[in-house]
């Protein structure tokens, strides 16, 4: 699952801009992944300029393949 390292986020919104599922909620100094919407596509992980968003594989049986990833 997608995990945001506590206390390290700058709340810049780059991850929100690439999230195809509207699965990230960003406030002035708070951010959270909306788990019900997240598809583990990992675009937010790549987008984060500060490497604050991590992807943890545990418990996930199957990752979306390149073909299944939402476009855009």
């Amino acid at each position: 699952m997608i995990y945001i390292v506590p206390g390290k986020c700058d709340f810049c919104g780059c991850c929100v801009g690439v999230c195809p599922e509207d699965a990230i909620e960003l406030l002035e100094s708070d951010i959270r992944i909306i788990d019900e919407r997240c598809t583990n596509c990992r675009k937010c992980v790549w987008a984060c300029p500060w490497e604050v968003i991590e992807f943890h594989r545990e418990g996930i049986e199957k990752l979306p393949t390149e073909l299944e990833l939402p476009q855009g």
């Binding site: 810049c12 919104g13 780059c14 929100v16 801009g17 690439v18 999230c19 195809p20 509207d22 960003l26 675009k43 790549w46 987008a47 476009q71 855009g72």
Partner: peptide, 18 residues
């Protein structure tokens, strides 16, 4: 801004390609 959600709520696709 880049983190826009207003558009998404109104049904406009604002997601930026990586």
């Amino acid at each position: 801004g880049v983190e826009s959600r207003v558009g998404k709520w109104a049904g406009i696709d604002t997601t930026c390609h990586i």
